[in-house]
Design a protein around this nucleic acid. Structure first.
Lengths: 251, 251
DNA sequence: GAAAATTTGTCCGTATGTATG
DNA sequence: ACATACATACGGACAAATTTT
């Protein structure tokens, strides 16, 4: 049952690290002590050195801390919860969970719309779009990197307004879009690209949640198509279909 | 730039395989030809042997086929799209995308509800729940493994009806729940556990999308809490908030 | 306080896997 | 197919820090 596999291109110590992260740490409280290295080695059927390599990796990720003579302990870090619904907004969604939120413009350019972007925005095949790349941060830790596309004819100044405000909602407001709603969100998961590792400050092998979303204005015209990469160890996506205003059944 | 990293516990050939899967194959049509091995080696800055190892792995996954003297070609396989909304149902959501769909009961047991399950189902702390583990398959390929919990007092025969029908919707119908809707869905991503690797037929290091969901009946009482693991390379989650367009009636 | 037990940290050597040319 | 260098995994022995007896 618990046979880790060899010769697969994934080092044993990394498989062990992944197992520890999810099954060992699953029900543990903050600052609780992990089983001893020897015990973990026995449980996974590997050498103690291999367990040590796994723990060293998790230490570098900030999840564990090891103290000589005492033991290894679970650090206190909790995941943010990012709500996705008709009124999906970065700042409003996380404002109760973090002290400081910010968005930073990394780059922008005007390009002919790639096919899937043109389709998402209901634009003709060779229309010009503005592509911006941004990183959003909560309490100083980057949580998402996003690439967004806007109709260059309708929002020629989107990059400048985003650079000034750090917010899509505020930028669109300045450009005449009083309100917008989320039409669709597709969610995938994958290993972070080297670029995203850099942008999000992640370790190699880290996982990102990838969302592809379309936002529309009050007249149901698409205003934004975006592809966001969320650091999967820092955030979860929450899809809540409860009609707003109805008291919650439980929780 | 695209500098692949060493000493990360992930073999270079596997990193190259992941890169090919997501960036090279991204915009390619089915049966299109890949760049030559030498060109790929140059692009990724690795030796040709390493590219060959990556291609061999992708061939074993069924994504590519290499033909001596001709080249390497992309097989035709697309990701399924699993819609999540108020009326989330496995069979109804995928029926237009696959020829055969099936659900199989792997195990069931009656246990005192774990705290988070009791909370999700609005049950007292030590209430009994029935826990079932299932695997759902599309066109013979497993796409999700799920663990679901039901109030043992209200649905004592849920395991038997699921075993008979292979469907949660049909099972609940037989047990007096004419209709149910999705209340919340939380989405995370992580490396597959060894158990899920086995259940879903994945290779070590593979990624799963993890959803935690609560379904409620017409009286807003929770009927099901479930944790599903989707093979991230076979399926994406689609959250569609369009009010019209989705037919209300389900058969 | 001293001794024993426990736990993490370091060093040795050896075999196999990975990556290059 | 060959040769070379480095990374990974194992096994054992022992040191260092801490807690328990």
């Amino acid at each position: 049952m618990k046979t880790l596999q060899r010769r697969t291109g994934i080092a044993l110590w990394r498989q062990v690290a992944d197992e520890i992260r999810q099954s060992v740490l699953a029900g543990m409280a903050a600052n609780a002590q992990l089983p001893a290295e020897a015990e973990l080695a026995a449980r996974f059927g590997v050498n103690r050195h291999t367990v040590r390599a796994a723990i060293a990796a998790l230490e570098k990720e900030g999840i564990l801390r090891a103290e000589q003579g005492r033991g290894t302990f679970l650090n206190d870090r909790k995941r943010l919860s990012y709500p996705i619904g008709r009124r999906t907004r970065f700042s409003a969604g996380l404002e109760n969970q973090a002290q400081t939120l910010s968005g930073k413009l990394l780059s922008s350019r005007t390009v002919p719309a790639p096919p899937h972007v043109a389709q998402a925005l209901s634009l003709p095949a060779n229309a010009l779009v503005i592509e911006i790349t941004t990183v959003s941060t909560a309490d100083g830790l980057p949580v998402s990197a996003a690439t967004s596309w806007f109709d260059a004819g309708r929002f020629p100044a989107i990059a400048e307004t985003y650079a000034a405000t750090g917010s899509i909602t505020a930028s669109l407001m300045r450009l005449g879009v009083d309100d917008y709603t989320r039409q669709t969100t597709a969610v995938e998961a994958r290993h972070a690209s080297t670029e995203d590792l850099d942008l999000l400050g992640l370790s190699p092998g880290a996982i990102v949640l990838l969302t592809r979303s379309v936002d529309i204005d009050a007249q149901a015209r698409p205003v934004q198509y975006g592809e966001s990469r969320f650091a999967a160890d820092r955030i979860e996506l929450l899809i809540d279909n409860r009609p707003s205003g109805v008291p919650e059944a439980a929780s």
